[in-house]
Amino acid sequence: MAENEKPHPSIIVPDELKGNVFVTTLDKLYNWSRKSSMWPLLFGLACCAIEMICTAASRYDLARFGMEIMRPSPRQADLMIVSGTVTKKMVPQIVRIYNQMAQPRYVISMGACATGGGPFKEGYNVVPGIDKFIPVDVYVPGCPPTPEALLYGILKLHEKVEKQSFLTAPWYHSRESDEIPVPVLGPDLFDPRRISEIKAKLAERRGAGSTVAVPAAEPELPVVSPTPTAPPGPTKLTPEEIEARRQAALAKRAELQAQQAATPASADKAKALQVEEMRIQALQRRLEQARSGQGKQSVEEIEKLLEEARARYERMKAGTS
């Protein structure tokens, strides 16, 4: 039993109440409920996401731990499973999603890529480890980790949750929680926290006349950026063509619906009539019950319903002929 789970020594349960009264700490109760319904974010990056889905599927059954409800909205999620390679293009979005999650929030780094870049570490577009940007609670090794490994990692996280306490948990401080600055896509990814360092180093390098062992700057090509005057939207299709396509799609749909309606229509109608007939019969039975004083509804109510049903039946029958 962890320290924060022991009942206070001053609480004494009288002998006659033992067996009826259980004493525990608020921490234990709170942590138990938190770990038993920890909802992960529905968030997959790469291969590991497939194993994460398999973990949630029937064979490994994440529902055993109260975690089967994966929420796509970060506002409703408690746990972010970073499942796959984190690229430079994706990391601003991941940090943003992390910032949007409500506290208490946890992060599992699933697989070699999320943990340290994995086999793709040397790539020019790969972030070597998500922990350079957001704090990680549990690392799960593997490429990809098997569902069993992920489950083990989740159980480890549960253990961690059980050891936390109201008094020390950072999310009960009165001050606002810190947001992690979102990395920016520049000529290369850069962290706003490192701006002064980057500036200083670049100034030093410019002063030293490019003797530092950095890749030679290649001949500068004009950076392509769509000119602000360029019209957005479709570049291949004119509005008339779009309208024509839309009409064609609608016509195709109408044609299919007509086709479907052509043959089984009478069968559908007949089936509907049958259903209506059965409803009338049921109402008649209920009316008899009501008359003998057994029904829950009054006789007048059922008579009204019956009248309506008969009228509907007649209308439908007239429609078919």
Binding site: G123, V126, V127, P128, I198, K199, V214, A217
Partner: peptide, 15 residues
């Protein structure tokens, strides 16, 4: 030099 998987051109100004 950057202790990370990044590289910047000499004339880059992050601000």
């Amino acid at each position: 030099p950057w202790h990370d998987n990044v590289n910047y051109p000499d004339d880059f100004d992050p601000e």
